[in-house]
Design a protein around this nucleic acid. Structure first.
Lengths: 341, 341
DNA sequence: CTGAAAGCGCTAACAC
DNA sequence: GTGTTAGCGCTTTCAG
């Protein structure tokens, strides 16, 4: 078995309390006692049992990354992975432990966020993947454990939100299309009950209206953010003839853009020569597609990092709960053609 | 604060021991007492504190997924994500908790696997990303905590290994290229100290030799599995004229194939019309590239699932440590041209 | 500055 | 069947 604090105490000829003080860098201990203890600890390869530690101290350096729907996603997507990388980056820099929990709508109903925290002695969590209709969406409000949601604005004394200005970003993206001479633009829309969908929709409409353009119903293709739905939708759209004169597809996510391009190619159309397509998210895969997709980079890794950072500050009482809006960046690549006037 | 076992005991008018028995479905308790306790527990929204539980019981339903180098990867890659999904799938089905730990060569030296387990009361771990030269590679051997490594054969009484028959798979892949009429094939090689590199190399050589073909040194492009290295290598290769008469690039990973195709396109070559390219791994991104890449699908998610499953069985004493070789599948897509005799 | 002791929430003998 | 109690390994008063 591994050495315990008892073993170290015995070997160093002191009490466990003193070992604890030495290990945790308490000030009220003589330098030489501390050193002796540290030596013995190293000798015995002693590592404090963090479980016991968190049980007795009632707080822990343990935060969680909670992913809702991680396993349900039919579609593959590296959003979560980038988010993770950001969170872990921060955690490692600050010597925190992260536990990842996968939940879904059903398990949210069975066990509240607070319960999950108490169960695992977790100080707080970054939560991704919540839908407007999820149980957590409401229950988080009363949570005494701090948390940071991504891209979903949940109110509550202890809940922060990290997001982008999706409206502005999507407006920029739309404006870019318009600047390139596109006038009749089809919108490939995301899941209805997603906050980001509404925000991006606003952005699109805003840009369109500013330029005296409209978005007729028949130019909207509805999806749940699944690539396949975009493909089918666009294929139908082309067949219907609904897309007469349309020159560009404005997609609410990169995966939708990929699906759109797929359908276009299947129909013998070229991108961007025949149709222009833009995406949104900044997934790494958009650099490997053909053509490389013009998109808005959300800098998801940063988002993870900042979310973990904010969570940490909330736990430590450094910052209060707040909404954080991170910068985005229009990433111009090869999927848009400039149309001559 | 959340309710504790004490609260439930008091409210139900029984002792904590009895509550414990009720909560853990022990047989030696009357049905009605159990029910009453369960009711009270639900009433109080009681959730056992798993930290206390694992501390007192000395075992836990906590396993870890340890990723070495997760943050160092310059290259993005969804290998880890798919692995995670597999592990979590199993964990959820079996009511296990998974903690994910990110380590690297340096932290491996500072803290052994066993220490990490004791620190967190972890029953065992699935370990991914180990290099032949990593400290864990040796230290795992003596571990008393069970673990399952992915694609790295580490000996040790308590260590299992889940992998594919990379040699056979790569041989198949090479043979496919040969069957399509390719005779002069360049090899885009992976990291030198990776076990999988050696195995795939063997497979390539085997297929080549069986067909009376050779692999001259100048037809090998060395990389560390980074896409950019493949790009540069292939570009240099084309410029050098080393690749005279070469008709196909056999890549040891999908990312290398992507880099290869990138370089080829940059040089004005078409894939597969001018050059054929095959990859290896079965990353989802190979379906979105142009052309879609012919590859060997390792079914990484399954690998994660089976690894977690084996780990669980080792912990429970159901299966001893062992090597598991999972099936692969040649995924024929559009990046290879058939060459007429 | 250091030791002794209570207790974190739970399990697991051991009684009765 | 159920209560009692001694820990699990650690932190944290409280003395001295």
């Amino acid at each position: 078995m591994a050495a315990t604090i008892q073993d170290v105490a015995k070997a160093a000829g002191v009490s466990v309390g003193t070992v604890s003080r030495a290990m945790n860098n308490y000030p009220d201990i003589s330098a030489k006692t501390r050193e002796r203890i540290l030596d013995v600890a190293k000798e015995l390869k002693y590592r404090p049992n963090l479980v016991a530690k968190s049980l007795s101290s009632k707080h822990s350096r343990n935060i969680a990354l909670i992913l809702s729907g991680f396993l349900e996603d039919v579609m593959f997507n590296d959003f979560e992975t980038m988010l993770m990388k950001g969170c872990y980056q921060f955690a490692i820099e600050h010597d925190l432990d992260i536990s990842m929990y996968v939940i879904n709508t059903k398990t949210q109903a069975e066990k509240s966020y607070e319960q999950l925290c108490y169960e695992h002695n977790i100080a707080g969590a970054v939560i991704f993947g919540l839908k407007n209709t999820d149980p957590y969406f409401k229950s988080l409000e009363e949570s005494r454990k701090p948390c940071v949601t991504i891209d979903v604005e949940v109110s509550g004394e202890n809940v922060s939100n990290v997001t982008n200005d999706h409206k502005a970003a999507f407006e920029e993206l739309t404006q870019y299309l318009i600047d390139q001479g596109h006038r009749k633009i089809a919108l490939v829309c995301g899941r209805e009950n997603a906050a980001v969908t509404a925000q991006r929709m606003e952005g699109a409409l805003s840009a369109l209206h500013k330029n005296g353009l409209a978005l007729p119903k028949e130019l909207i293709i509805y999806t749940n953010f699944l690539k396949e739905e975009a493909s089918e939708g666009v294929a139908r759209f082309l067949k219907d003839g609904a897309g007469k004169d349309v020159t560009a597809f404005l997609c609410m996510s990169d995966m939708l853009a990929i699906g759109t391009i797929e359908a276009l190619k299947m129909s013998g159309e070229r991108v961007p020569q025949d149709y222009s397509v833009v995406g949104y998210d900044g997934l790494y895969v958009t650099e490997y597609t053909d053509p490389k997709i013009t998109t808005v980079d959300q800098n998801i890794k940063d988002k993870g990092y900042e979310a973990a950072n904010l969570l940490y500050d909330m736990i430590e009482g450094i910052r209060p709960a707040q909404d954080l809006i991170l910068p985005h960046k229009l990433e111009i690549r090869d999927s848009v053609r400039q149309i001559d006037a």
